[in-house]
Amino acid sequence: MITLPPSERDLHAYVDHQLSDADRLTLETWLAAHPETAEQVQAWQLDAQSLRAALSGGLHRVPNPELDPTYIRQRMRRNTYRHYATAAVLLVAVSIGGLSGWQAREMTLASNVLPMADAVQAYRMFAVKDDMANDWNPGKTSDAQGWLDKNFAQADRLPNLEAAGFKPVSGRLSSTEQGAAAILVYQDNDGRKLTFYIRPPGPLNRPLPAGSRRDGELQADYWSGAGYNYAVVSRADDPASQIARQALRQPI
């Protein structure tokens, strides 16, 4: 219920048809007796009317097909696809960058780390001198394989190189960053030596593809199996060693 005299807000509410019927009647009666306020109210009403009239033309503009909801939905869908596509391209680009970076890192690492370099070093340390201390020799037990199995679970069978004239003569445990390693020295009747080397996979911690490489006067033949890397190191140009290397290629 409004109170009289009406507040300015009541007058605006009257102009805007926001009063209840009862309030509207009360106010109209009051306005009839107060012509000055009535004139003010009428001026507002006239303004509202002229505004309605003046703006009514704005409702009859030529339709814009780009504002049709169907078109807008299509546009939104296209934009969504475009965003997904952009995201996918970015993802691919980042992945390619990341993968090639990783690949480059591995290649750098790999080029720095020659496969089974420690096997070759071990040959130079243990196979060259006859009087090196050892952890196994045929005097302790005749079974080199048993000694190896005691220290390495699931080690490969030792290569049998007897046909080429080589027999195990001493074995020695050593260690690498990745764990225990062992070298087994083979010797033939003429005193020529080759070594069998076993170790856990290297810094990149991955199996080696079978292969061979030459390091100075030595040749390392290497392969992987059952959690270890293996190498047989022998003198590269020695005919007896070549025969032994051929024997290696037979399944062990």
């Binding site: 509410a13 805007d16 048809h17 926001q18 303004d47 509202a48 505004l51 309605r52 703006l55």
Partner: peptide
């Protein structure tokens, strides 16, 4: 003014 006078929205 457009909301009130032309469109007739409530306060």
């Amino acid at each position: 003014l457009l909301w009130v006078s032309v469109e007739g929205l409530s306060y």
